[in-house]
Each structure stands twice: as C-alpha cells, then as structure tokens.
Design a protein around this nucleic acid. Structure first.
Lengths: 139, 139
DNA sequence: CTGTGTGCAAACTCTTTGCATAAGT
DNA sequence: ACTTATGCAAAGAGTTTGCACACAG
C-alpha cells in the first residue's frame, strides 16, 4: 500500500531534485511525520532501524545534509559536540537544557529582538539565532 | 624580569585556585593581553609555540577548560565543528561569518531582547545567546 | 617532600570519504 | 542502460584520557 504521507514525501523529495529512494523516503517520513523535531544523526539512525528500515550511518549523514541543502531542515548550533537538525525551518528560537542536551522550540511570537546592529560592510544577515540556555532551578 | 601583566595573571590564577604554572601563565597572558578574543584550541596552541612557550595540545585543552570552569572565559556555540572560547565573559552577543568561521563581538548596547518566554517549570535561564549569522553580500 | 600539572601517545567520538554494489529512471 | 544512491570500512578531525615525569608550594 502507498500512504498519503509517502506520496507527500515523494513529492517533497522530487521538488528538491532528490530521487525518492527507499531510505530517503523512510527518513523523510520519520522526520516529518511527528511535527517539529530536533534530532541528531544517531537518533535518526536508531529510529530508522527500529522502524524496520535499516539505513547506514553514512546514509543518514548524507541524507540529512542533502535535506539541509534543500532547505527542508536546518542545522542547529547549540552544543559543540553533536550536530542537531531542526525540522522546523521557519523563524523561531530555542531553549537548550544544559546537561540534558535537550532542545525545545520557543514559540515564534514570544521573542522580540530590537536594535539589530548593522552588519559589517559587505555583509548581510543570513539568520539570527537565539538560544536560551536553561539549567535546573536549584531549590 | 617580571612584568605587570605576569603579576596580574598570577593573581588571576591564584584567585581561581589554579597554580600559576609556566604554561598557564603563558596561556593566560596570550589570552588576555590583547583584549577580547575568540579563539580555538588550535590557534592558542600555535600562538604559544610562536611565543616561545611550547605547550602540548592536551595542556591547552585542559587549561582552557579550567579557565572556563573558573569563569575566566566562556565557550561559544556557533559552529558545530570546533570549540570557540570567548575571553569576554560579560553579557554580549556575536556575529558569525559563515564560510570564514570568524566570530565578532556585537556591542552590548546594540541588541534588546523583549518578551523573553518563561522557562519551563523547574528551569531557570542560565544565559541568552544571540548569534547573528552573516554572509557575504552578493552584488 | 607531597601533590598537582604537564606531555605524550593512545583512545574515543563524531563525521566524512572512497569504492564496489544496488537501486532508480 | 545509464546515473545516482547506498553500505561498508577506513580515514579524518577534534577532543579526552592514562600514566610517567616534572614542577610548585
């Protein structure tokens, strides 16, 4: 059977010029089926395996980068060890829970940034990232 | 001869409970002599060698982490490959030049952030990081 | 002297790459 | 058929660690 989600994934991939292979389809579905997510390569690799679609780590890396180039997902710079991918490409910001290494979305409307500085000569702003680092309240 | 800067470094280290060893003194001086800086382990390692104080990479890592724990410097999360250390611990934000991998300070006064969201239950805000990613203007 | 700090090399983690095989069009 | 993707294993970058030797107090 071919589900509606599979069709959407296939189109999404084709539009980005990517062949809808078994692996890319599976990864796209895992990524987009559950709404906005923040995931690492390792997590997605495990999810794929658990979902019965064994995919090599290299393919997960390749695929996530291709998706990133295609603008389907974004790379998050929150912690310097692992790379986090964000399935929400729209303008929004993040909480990062230190220790836990957990990323949470901040509703777009919440934050307002004022007095953005002028970029240096010849440069333009590509993106503004706000990361609010959280720690457990001591009590 | 013992310079004023060396004395300041020595006191700074002692205050943080770190023995003012040859290596730590040298690194502290390289780090703090030139005002606010953003550096990688590799850069500092090279500078130390060039300054005639050969220090092992491991020691640079150890030392920068000790300095970080002591609150003398901060870790910047801008790009997910290397770790950047910021010698400016005060509240301020950054430009990050994509491709170039260059970090620039944004004058403190410039940015105002409004409507900071409430942190989730039991959490408190440790720090707010704003990174403005820049790209070369196409013209 | 006694305890820390340092240097080296090996280990580790995350990520990328090269190349033969498999799959898509 | 022709082209692109995948998987594996090996290589690469950045970082950490264990242990013998050196240095600071």
């Amino acid at each position: 059977m071919t589900t509606a989600i599979e069709i959407r994934s296939e189109e999404r991939l084709r539009r980005s010029g990517l062949r809808p292979t078994r692996q890319r389809m599976a990864l796209a579905e895992l990524i987009f089926a559950k709404g906005d997510r923040h995931l690492t390569v390792e997590e997605l690799h495990e999810e794929a395996g658990a979902a019965g679609v064994p995919v090599s780590l290299a393919t997960v890396y390749n695929t996530l980068h291709q998706f990133t180039e295609a603008g389907m997902i974004r790379v998050l710079a929150v912690e310097s060890a692992k790379t986090y991918f964000d399935t929400n490409v729209s303008d929004h910001h993040h909480f990062f829970v230190e220790g836990h290494n957990e990323v949470l979305d901040i509703p777009v409307s919440s934050i307002t940034i004022g007095n953005l500085p002028e970029p240096p000569e010849g440069m333009e702003i590509a993106h503004v990232d706000v990361v609010i680092r959280l720690r457990r309240k001591r009590g």
